[in-house]
Amino acid sequence: MAEIEIKNIAKSFGNYQALHNINLTIHDQEFMVLLGASGCGKSTLLRIIAGLETATSGEVWIGGRRIDHLSPKDRGIAMVFQNYAVFPHLTVFENIGFGLRMQKLPNAEVERRVHRTAELMHIEQLLKRYSGELSGGQRQRVAVARALAMEPDVILMDEPLSNLDALLRMEMRAELKGVLAESKTTAIYVTHDQVEAMSMADRISVMHQGRIAQNSSPVEVYRNPSEKFVAGFIGNPPMNFLPATEVSKGQWSVAGCQFSGPEAHSGAIDFAIRPEDLSPADTGIAAIAKVVEPLGAHLLVTCDVEGHLFRAVLDSDLALRAGDTIHLAPQQDRIRWFDQNTTQAICLS
């Protein structure tokens, strides 16, 4: 059992506050992704869990044991680094077996575990090579095998796929997910790539400016972003926002159209809709197409709605040219509302 509990973790570098009171629980065998733009504090949080960085305040518990005062080797963790950190002076075999040798395991056990994990990662044929003779993808596999060979309670991964090319990344994504599910370890995976996060995570914690903005399942993060930042960060292209004005109780006017929205809300609010939840109709939000990009499967249309940027993902058969005016009807149950001041989502009761 390796449930990870992060309690009130804060970290500052000089005057700069990198993390503000982070509280997070990661369940046993869960695949948790920390997602955010660079500088949001996600790597710092991971490094605090790993013991490579010391928190200014707060506690980290793994499997019911407080570990933030322990050295990395005593925390029951293994880590995969962004640049792999595969030791260049050791063969692949000795790289995978490095942690096991440090634990002074008997030779036979080291061999058994190295061969087992190498087989799992499909790199048995590389065991005698040095890292200089490997491709980026192969090095990545060695780094993962090295972590798995430790049979850790927790695997920490710091942007492990970001240095691979797109095709390889897609392949490794699926493979990593499978291997980790099988190994039954708890995993924390740091990435700035939302596709990676959506496709791999059991749960996503979206981080922003040293805080956790939202912490829920991938679908929930996508469908019901808790604040405007999340709505704008997740999804490619991101969610559209338009200012709304109240017409009557629960009725809001958005770019000349009327929608039913939150009742009795004080302060200005935004109407939000995902580009793919729009479809061309006779009536709807009037948008002037500025740029039309055929993407094969879809047509990405960048429009102007009363001076606001507005994107729609439409059927690729649609005949549309830049300059055309189009009416876009949003799918009613996908409309979301955000408070303009607090940027928080407004729940419809």
């Binding site: 790993a50 013991g51 490579l52 050295s71 990395p72 080797k73 963790i77 293994a78 880590m79 680094f81 962004q82 640049n83 950190a85 030791f87 260049p88 002076h89 490095f98 942690g99 440090m102 634990q103 090295r146 430790m150």
Partner: peptide, 24 residues
């Protein structure tokens, strides 16, 4: 990063010196 990896995988200061610094 090599030192960090060595640390996470259980090498203390002396082992990091003999297993990472010296060979590299």
């Amino acid at each position: 990063e090599y030192y960090e990896a060595a640390e996470v995988f259980g090498a203390g200061p002396w082992k990091r010196f003999t297993r990472i610094t010296l060979p590299l």
